[in-house]
Design a protein around this nucleic acid. Structure first.
Lengths: 227, 227
DNA sequence: TTTGCCTTTCTTGTATACATGACGAGCCTG
DNA sequence: CAGGCTCGTCATGTATACAAGAAAGGCAAA
């Protein structure tokens, strides 16, 4: 579990209130459009409204919540179009990571990427979607890290967090897993082979495909929710 | 003046407290490393500590401030390396904007970009650095807008805000103005000519050059400050 | 019955009081 | 005299009280 925002808590064990709420959003406990009541959150977490408000503001700044003055906080609803756009930017950031990784990754870095990829494969073969979700996240985070570009890593992680709830929905689409594998494999090969443009292109396609699938899924879910 | 974060205030005239503090950071009133005292800010703005804290948290999430628990908020200090990295990501985002703009910009959009460019030229010829700073900002914001990609525009604006204080320092480097002009001109031509890759490449170079110059400047300023 | 206004209630926004941890000054000791 | 420890002071973190706007429900009039 990665913590929210650069201002990381001093005590590694204790996750911040904002993190816990973000986690609840990511897991779908608070679906998009859910209105978050400050008092309820305060009681649930055993604190007063003040820290709750501060957490909500943080999440609002991160884009996970939409705060309307005097009207409370709701989990940000993103349209299919917006989601596509977010995935497009994510693709570009990851492509930049891939390009840099192909150029800069050390042998150990390459090994880490391969290991993360194998983790995905294992989870896929075990047919464990939850494990795959986590392994896949690790794989992408590994890519960000081995680009050796601190700020880019931060930005990629931030956007990745914001898309987390939607990425989780990917688990429902069974066919995505195997095709995702092939795409990861190509990326690993390109990065380890030092082929910058191939790595970048791989990434763009991989994430873009995800974006399209998610947009479809979201649209169908929205229809489902209305029914 | 653009407002901070997607949660924009309801009353257009009234700038939020966070915006005012951000402005003070951008203008250099609070240089990097400055410690912001909650009580002092509260008194200065005629409010209590609560809204001040909320503003600080917002700015912390945006990256302008670094909040350490129990140790207060300081204006984020970025190293020359970090600054370079931020400009590199900015370049990539702008390149994406340029690529999209070259593909999607309408005649009116192209006209708007040309107009913004002429504004820069006018300010440059008038020898008014402050005006140039504003016109230049408008030019870039216009580019973001005519890419017709809402989320990308948001991201670009956010990073642009974060770099604002450093962009302002550009004014000191006299020679930047004229070379900046040529770069802008090339970008305008590429976008209006619909040449995606040329537009993107232009942007990357333009912003990267800025990044390098700023890194130099920052290093010299840091040395100056220590003396 | 429906529509518009008013009132009521509830939530958010702000202020203030209190608790707690950090930093520094001063003292004691080696 | 130097170094470390302790205590005091102050800023931050949290809780609570109060103010004010928004939404919902009821009442009256058409």
């Amino acid at each position: 579990m990665d913590d929210l925002s650069p201002l990381r808590s001093d005590t590694p064990g204790a996750t911040s209130l904002a993190d816990r709420i973000a986690e609840a959003i990511a897991t779908g406990e608070y679906p998009p459009g859910t209105r978050l009541d400050e008092i309820e959150l305060a009681e649930r977490h055993g604190v007063s409204r003040t820290p709750v408000r501060e957490a909500l503001i943080q999440l609002g700044a991160a884009g996970l919540l939409t705060l309307r003055p005097r009207r409370g906080a709701v989990v940000t609803e993103v349209s299919a179009r917006q989601l596509m756009e977010m995935f497009e930017v994510m693709a570009e950031l990851e492509a930049m990571c891939a390009r840099l990784a192909a150029r800069r990754a050390s042998a150990a870095d390459q090994q880490a990427l391969r290991a993360a990829h194998l983790g995905c494969v294992g989870a896929m073969q075990a047919g464990d979607p939850d494990a795959y979700y986590l392994r896949n996240e690790t794989f992408h985070h590994t890519l960000y890290r081995i680009a050796h570009h601190g700020f880019l890593e931060q930005q990629a992680l931030a956007l990745s967090r914001r898309l987390r709830a939607y990425r989780r929905l990917q688990l429902r689409v069974r066919t995505r897993l195997s095709s995702s594998f092939a795409e990861h494999q190509a990326l690993v090969d390109a990065v380890c082979g030092g082929d910058e443009s191939a790595a970048a292109q791989c990434c763009r396609e991989h994430v873009s495909v995800q974006g399209e699938r998610f947009a479809d899924l979201l649209a169908s879910m929205a229809a489902e929710r209305r029914a």
